[in-house]
Amino acid sequence: MTNETTAISESETEYYDEVTYQQYRDEISETNYYVTKIPNKDKDQNFIKLNHGFQYDSMNSGEGETVRSFAHRKNVSFAANASIFNTSNNQIRGIQIQDGQILQATTYSDYYTLGIKADNTLVAYPPSISANNILQDGCLNTVTGFFPIIENGNPVDSSIFDGKNQSNEAHPRQVIAQLPNKDLLFFTVKGRTDLSKGMTYNDCIRVLQEFNVTFAYCLDGGGSTQSVVRGVLLNDPIDGDGKIERKVPDFLYVVKNVTNARNLDATTYDLGNVNKKVSDLKADLNKMGAFFDNVQVVDNLNNINKSGLYWILGSATGAPSNDTSWGIIHMQHSPNNSLQIGFPFHNTLNGMRSRRTNPNQVGTYYNWRNL
């Protein structure tokens, strides 16, 4: 028992603890997003390399692989989807270079190539630049997403992307960005839900400038958007009512040398499994209208017209009582048919209560009653 405990404890340190993430909300676009920070060096001043990997370690396997599956196989600290691809056969698009070897030299459409130099410096190349020239410029890895949106700290000329890749529409986005000190940011935008609409390119530019990035480039997005940190998928899937993670052809990732891979593999697997079960449960609840990502504070329960979780003070209109605050689940079937369940903040004589709309008088509720 002692040996097992020690081994697991040691394995946990083999992740990059320096890789951190945080969730934010942008009220302008009405969207939640994650920012994952990958420093250029760890706490011991060792370089943290950004790597380029493929579906089951083969660019041409055609099977596709979820980011979570790839992250588990490789025991990575972070992984994200990368290149665009043909969704019918999972064949990857554009110039692909891995560890200094050109695997695919053909550009795709007018999309830019993202180059990654040995020190993680990011560079975007227009389709007129060949794979050989990119390699000669010092980039050891490339992926092909869409377009750069920030270069040298400033937004690029919008003519580069305007009207392309649905840039003016709100969608989930995956953007890789860089700070002046070469730290990397992965900007993972949720979307296509009532709670998170998604972002346009200009939304992404506006938010990323608040983080003072010098460079930003749009990777594949939409339903392909996935970011995994230490076995945990940050954003919610879109396919299959929020339960199916999309298979993609390649990945950008960071991994730390592992001395006890077997135990770390078990830890990653367990974290991933628990996270997947929670994600699936959350998807089921979302279908019923309970959006648990964001509890809204309201001051009038009688005016709510959308299912979800709410928080009120005792002074709010329609509150079950005025001597405590309340958590409220609101279930809306139709404009004149809804049910509310209240949970008191203070554990006093107040118990859970419920009320429903009065079908004989539109826009009114029956009195609250104890459950």
Rank of each mutant, 00 (worst) to 15 (best):
E4Q: 06
T6H: 10
I8N: 04
I8C: 00
E10A: 11
E14I: 06
E14T: 10
Y16E: 00
Y16H: 02
E18Q: 15
Y21I: 03
D26N: 08
T36M: 03
I38P: 01
K41E: 09
K49W: 04
N51P: 05
H52E: 03
F54V: 01
F54N: 03
Y56S: 05
Y56I: 01
D57P: 05
V67G: 05
V67N: 07
F70Y: 15
F70P: 08
F78G: 02
N81V: 03
N81S: 14
N86W: 14
G94M: 14
I95Q: 14
Q98H: 08
G100H: 15
G100W: 13
L103P: 13
L103C: 11
A105G: 14
T113C: 10
T121C: 06
L122V: 09
P127D: 12
S128Q: 10
S128P: 04
N133A: 05
N133L: 08
I134G: 00
Q136K: 09
D137G: 10
C139H: 13
L140Y: 12
L140N: 11
G153T: 02
G153R: 13
P155D: 01
P155I: 02
V156S: 09
D157K: 15
S158W: 07
S159D: 13
D162H: 13
G163C: 01
K164D: 07
K164T: 01
N165I: 03
Q166M: 10
N168D: 13
E169T: 14
D183S: 03
L184G: 00
L184S: 10
L185E: 05
G191V: 11
S196I: 07
D203N: 15
C204Q: 09
F215C: 01
A216H: 13
Y217R: 08
L219N: 09
D220T: 03
G223L: 01
S224I: 02
S224K: 10
Q226K: 12
Q226H: 09
V228L: 02
P237D: 01
I238Y: 14
I238S: 02
K243W: 02
R246S: 00
R246D: 04
F251H: 05
V255W: 03
A261H: 06
A261M: 11
R262K: 12
N263I: 07
D265L: 05
D265C: 00
Y269E: 14
N273G: 02
V274Y: 13
K277D: 02
D284P: 04
N286H: 09
V295I: 15
V297R: 12
V298E: 15
D299F: 07
L301I: 04
L313V: 03
S315M: 03
G318W: 02
G318S: 08
P320G: 04
S321W: 08
N322E: 11
D323E: 11
D323N: 14
T324S: 10
T324V: 07
S325T: 05
G327S: 14
I328M: 12
H330R: 05
M331L: 15
N336M: 11
I341F: 15
F343G: 00
P344F: 12
N347G: 08
R356S: 04
N358S: 02
N358V: 00
Y365N: 09
N367A: 06
N370C: 01
